[in-house]
Design a protein around this nucleic acid. Structure first.
Lengths: 344, 344
DNA sequence: CCCCTCTGATATATCGTTATATTAAAGCCA
DNA sequence: TGGCTTTAATATAACGATATATCAGAGGGG
C-alpha cells in the first residue's frame, strides 16, 4: 500500500461503497449489524484515520481550537494551557498552542496561519501592538474568539482579572502588617492589565495614607525582577515592601535579595501575582495573588464553547477576582526580625 | 456579508473568475498587471484569507507541523518550542504544540486528532507507555516524523542526547573537585534516557573507584527534587554531591537544601541537566549539563524538513553532546567552606 | 486574407469527505 | 399477484480551493 488509507481504501477492503463506510464510522443512516462489523474491521486493518480537513470542509464542523498567548515559558501559561486543553478535549476538540512572544508581527503571522488551517475557535491573549487590521481580519472570518487579559475589541468575548481590586488587597495586607513605604515592581508596557494594577495600587496607597508611591518598571521575568530589586534597593533603601507584576518578577526579586544576603519577608516584604506552582514551593514561600490558572483555563474554554454554540449572542465580559495567599515573603517591617518558615 | 469571504467572493468583487483570483494569489499563470492589481485590492477589501484545508487537499501540500511533548511547564520545553517554531516559521510552516503530559492515552488522542487535521509533519517526544498500535497508526499515515529523547522505532528519524557521556563528564567534574560519594537523583521510569544516564553514572563511578553509587528516584519536578534531597540527606548524610535528572530536579534540590539552612555548593554539590535559562540566574547559579534547548529545537526542525523533502531516505539518528557548565553549586567538599558567588 | 502563435483569461475536473437522493430488494397486506 | 412500506445499500452532488485544459482575441508572417 503506497499511500495513506482513505475512505475508498476501507470500502474496497470491506467490499462496500465509500458512502457506507462513512455512515458506519459516523454512526448515521441504516446499516446492518453484519456490514457494520465488516467495515469496522477493515478500517482497523488498514489503520484508517479520516482526513479531518475534507470532513470539516464538507460538514462545516470543526473541532480545532487555537490558543495564542505571549510567553509559553511562563509557568502561569503552562497551567492555563492545561486547563483549557482538558476542558476542550473533553468535548473532542483539538487545542493547539501558539506563542506570539508578545510580538505583533509574529502574532499576525500565526493568526493568519491558524485561521487558514483551523476553523473552530480561538482563545487569544493579544500581544502588545495588536492593530485594527488584525481585528478586521478576525471579524471577517466570523471566528468565535475569546480574548484574555487584554481587551482589544468591545465586540469580542473577554475574560480579565480584577486587577485594581487585587492590588488593593495586596497593599491592604502590607499596610496591615505595618508597612508604610510600598513600591510596585514590574512591567514596562503602558497598557491595560499593568495600568489597572498600578491604578489600584496608587488608589490603595492614597486611601491608606501611606508614604509616597513608587512604580519601578522592569521586564516581566525572573531576570528582570532580580535586577530591578537590586537597583530599587540601591536607589530607595527605605522601601520596605514590594508588590510585583507577576510571580516571575517576584521570584526574581527574591533571588536578587538573596544575592545581597537579604531575604524576602525579612528586610523586604514581597507579593507576587499569579500563584504559579513554584510560589508555594520556593524558600521562602511566596505570598501572592492567586488566580488559579488551571481553573481560569477551564472557564476560558467554557466561554468559547458558549460562543461557538450561539454565535449571535451579545459579547460578554467575565472579571475574575484574585485572592491573596499569605505565605512567608510578607511579614511586619521590624528590622532584623527573622520569621519562621511556614511549610507548604 | 453574512459568511466568511471565499475565493468566489473576491472574484465577484474584482469582476473576474475564481480561477483568476487563485492564480493571482498564488503567483502562477499569466495575469496582466492591471487585473492582478484589481484582484489584490479586492482580496484586501473583503479581508480574504484562503481556506488552507481546501488548498492543502487539492494541492497535496501541507504547511502544518505538530509538536507533541511531555510537559509544557518545563522551561526546557518552552525553549525547545521556540527553537522549533522559529526555524519552521521561517519556511512558512505553522507549528502547533500539544502536551501529552506523558500520558499514553492522552497522547494517542492528541496524535489521532493531529493526524486527522494536519498532514505536514510531526516532531514527537513519545510518552511512556507508547504502544505498537500507535506506531502502526503513524506508519500507515506516511507522516514525516522525528522523535526526540525516546526512541520508539528504528524506522523513524531520531534525535537524542548522549546521556551516558554527559553523566560521565558530570561525575568526573565532581571527582576532580574531590568528591567521593556521589548520588544520582531523579526520575522513576525505567526507560531509555534515564537508564542511559544511570548507566553512565554507574560506569563513571566504577572507573574512578569512587564510593558506592546511589540512585535516588523522584518525580522530575521542582517539588520532587526538593522532597527527594531532604529524604536523601536524612538517609545518607555522607553523600557529598548529587547529579540530577534535569534542572527542575536540581533547582528543587537547591530549594530543599535552603529550607534546611544549607546551601548547594557548600554542604552538597549539585549538578543539573538541561541548562534552562533559570539555571544561570538562580542563587547560587546552577552547575549543569547544557544542551542548548533553543538550538536543539532548530536542529529537530531541520531534521524534519530534510525528511519531508526526501521521504524515501534511510532513517537517521542524531546524537547530541551536552557540555558541562560549571557554576556555583559545585565546589570541593571541604566542610563549612563557603564559596564566593560567581556572577553570571 | 488565412493560419499560426502568443497572451490573458475562463471552464472543468479533482482532492477526501459527508448529506441527500435514489435504488434494489424484501416484506406486508388486501 | 400487485401495489406499498420498510430496510439496506449505493449514487451523486456538494464543500473551497488548485491544476490543467480550453478558449477568445490580438498580432504576425507568408
Amino acid at each position: 500500500m503506497a499511500h495513506r488509507p482513505k475512505l475508498s481504501t476501507v470500502a474496497a477492503a470491506a467490499g462496500v461503497s465509500p458512502a457506507t463506510v462513512s455512515q458506519v464510522l459516523r454512526g448515521t443512516g441504516r446499516i446492518s449489524e453484519e456490514t457494520r462489523a465488516r467495515v469496522l474491521e477493515a478500517a482497523r486493518a488498514v489503520n484508517y484515520l479520516p482526513d479531518g480537513r475534507a470532513a470539516a470542509m464538507r460538514s462545516g464542523e470543526n473541532r480545532e481550537i487555537g490558543l495564542v498567548l505571549h510567553h509559553l515559558a511562563n509557568p502561569f501559561n503552562a497551567e492555563l494551557v492545561s486547563g483549557v486543553s482538558d476542558r476542550l478535549e473533553r468535548d473532542g476538540y483539538l487545542v493547539s498552542v501558539l506563542d506570539s512572544r508578545d510580538d505583533a508581527e509574529r502574532q499576525e503571522r500565526n493568526l493568519r496561519a491558524l485561521i487558514a488551517n483551523m476553523r473552530g475557535g480561538l482563545i487569544w491573549v493579544p500581544a502588545s501592538g495588536t492593530d485594527a487590521a488584525t481585528l478586521d481580519l478576525l471579524a471577517a472570518q466570523r471566528l468565535p474568539v475569546v480574548t484574555f487579559l487584554h481587551r482589544v475589541s468591545p465586540d469580542l468575548d473577554h475574560v480579565e482579572l480584577n486587577n485594581a481590586r487585587a492590588l488593593r488587597d495586596a497593599v491592604a495586607h502590607l499596610a496591615d502588617l505595618g508597612h508604610r513605604r510600598i513600591a510596585f515592581l514590574g512591567g514596562t508596557a503602558p497598557r491595560a492589565p499593568r495600568t489597572d494594577r498600578i491604578a489600584g495600587y496608587l488608589a490603595a496607597v492614597a486611601e491608606r495614607g501611606l508614604g509616597a508611591p513608587l512604580v519601578w518598571p522592569c521586564e516581566d521575568s525572573r531576570r528582570g525582577g532580580r535586577d530591578a530589586i537590586l537597583s530599587l534597593r540601591a536607589a530607595h533603601p527605605d522601601i520596605g515592601a514590594v508588590v510585583c507584576n507577576g510571580d516571575m518578577v517576584a521570584l526574581g526579586a527574591c533571588l536578587g535579595l538573596a544575592s545581597r544576603g537579604e531575604r524576602a519577608g525579612r528586610e523586604v516584604s514581597i507579593i507576587g501575582f499569579d500563584d504559579v506552582a513554584e510560589a508555594a514551593l520556593a524558600t521562602p514561600a511566596l505570598t501572592t495573588l492567586s488566580v488559579m490558572p488551571y481553573d481560569l483555563g477551564r472557564r476560558l474554554a467554557e466561554r468559547l464553547l458558549a460562543r461557538m454554540s450561539d454565535p449571535a449572542a451579545a459579547p460578554t465580559t467575565l472579571r475574575i477576582d484574585a485572592t491573596l495567599v499569605p505565605r512567608d515573603t510578607t511579614a511586619p517591617p521590624s528590622p532584623r526580625r527573622p520569621i519562621r518558615s511556614r511549610r507548604t
